[in-house]
Design a binder for these strands. Structure first.
Lengths: 253, 253
DNA sequence: AATGGTGTTCAGTAAAAAAGAACAGGATTA
DNA sequence: TAATCCTGTTCTTTTTTACTGAACACCATT
């Protein structure tokens, strides 16, 4: 099968670019959009009208401005069902967060990157919880990524090492391929990955792979927090907690 | 401002209808889509290519089939930020679910309907959790809806009663407008709404409104479960639990 | 080696989207 | 109270482009 992804329907491209603009500004008007894209107001109006009729956008009756509509919900729901692990894992993640007092993250491997699905904070946390769904990170410098990488096939690992540039995010980032490989070997033996401030200075993390029924790598879950919280004692305790809930999640996949 | 929502860009309509079809079937091919819509394969191919280039779809390299892409994540994230209450409420909802052993729902009023945002089950629940985001229900026959309705302006309530047809979902559904109004008065006095198998037979529910900082109705949260679990004692206990966590949520909105 | 199934390509032609100005209505200002 | 300046919307002509329809390339099964 050929892998071609050209733009062949220009009016569609235009409409989607306009739709994408709503991810930056939630409320937009015809004039603002036409100025931003250098399009005629009538053109923009036609596109917005159609998007509205298809319920991809809604229009405020008073101001005439547009915002994202309900059909986006339906699409995201359909996409979310692909990652049903989120729904299964959430209550367990909350438990882990409560028991450890740290943040808990869920992510899946996606095109050699870490794709975050969900984050859970301790119940008493006063932090603002903004959605992490869709965020991405490198594999080699995050606990989640290393937990995934370590449990992929040897061929995939070699492939990754070959063409992944190991850029330093902090002074602790692993930038040497042999060193990274050794870390992955240890990660696999240990059963969980350790991110020792490799992605963000002052933040440590332990991460465990989640396997699907057939034994293949499916996701990873991490406990992440201030480096000072990561004592020897805590790490070993948390690893046990993590293992316990990962098992529960795996049994329901 | 005029309220017009005609289809004016037909190629866009076609593309969005195709995109919507992915909410029914997560994986689709050119042939299947062209047969379903009665379009030429080349037409479908052009649209799919463009959607793929814009990352609204992804293509499996092996099979050539298409599925929803990452850009949907970004859109849903932008839409989700509009309803940030979900993120705030989730850990509390989990707590309520754990403490009561019942399911907990979060919804907002949307165009005189109940728009579900999130559901939480007890941590030990073995039920499959499928996403409820985007589901809708009538206001007059659900606990959530009655909790909302009771706390809207008198004018809005009268308006609702005037043109909402009270269709019976179960034999307990309220189909009389005067009766519904009295129920709303009692709901407001009581501080929470009771759904006595009015939407689904055998399922009861108590629901409490969530107010925003300025005192206006913002959402509602409900505890829902088998009718047999809803003893006098449980209801009064659960109402206290609900109130406690609704207060916490309101303080963080 | 032949068949039936994909997804993809490419021509001409028919259809529709864009240009560009004019319109309608509300809000602000004189 | 009237003029101005914003909106979003409408309309017709022209130009663009998306659709038709068949042929192609590829893979898997027969």
């Amino acid at each position: 099968m050929a892998e071609n992804s050209e733009i062949k329907v220009k009016s569609l491209q235009k409409a989607l670019e306009i739709l994408n603009y709503f991810t930056e500004k939630p409320i937009l008007g015809v004039t603002e959009i036409s100025e931003h894209f250098g399009l005629y107001k009538s053109t923009v109006h036609n596109i917005l009208s159609t998007l509205k009729a298809m319920e991809y956008l809604e229009q405020d009756e008073a101001s005439g401005k547009y915002c994202l509509g309900m059909q986006i919900f339906n699409l995201s729901k359909a996409l979310g069902d692909t990652y049903s692990i989120t729904k299964i894992a959430m209550p367990y993640m909350q438990e882990i967060a409560n028991q450890t007092g740290e943040r808990v993250y869920l992510a899946v491997p996606y095109r050699e990157e870490v794709l975050y699905l969900e984050a859970m904070y301790p119940a008493d946390s006063v932090e603002l919880m903004r959605s992490i769904l869709g965020e991405r990170a490198r594999m080699y410098c995050t606990g989640l990524g290393k937990a995934m990488l370590a449990n992929m096939g040897e061929q995939e690992i070699q492939n990754y090492l070959e063409h992944q540039e190991l850029e330093a995010f902090t002074e602790n980032s692993i930038t040497n391929k042999e060193q990274l490989y050794q870390d992955l070997v240890r990660t696999r033996q240990r059963g969980y990955a350790i991110d020792d401030m490799e992605h963000e200075f002052g933040i440590k993390c332990i991460a465990m792979p989640v396997f699907s029924r057939n034994g293949s790598l499916y996701a990873a879950i991490s406990i992440s927090g201030l480096a000072t919280h990561f004592t020897e004692k805590n790490i070993s305790e948390w690893a046990i907690i993590l293992k316990k809930y990962v098992r529960k999640i795996e049994s329901r996949l």
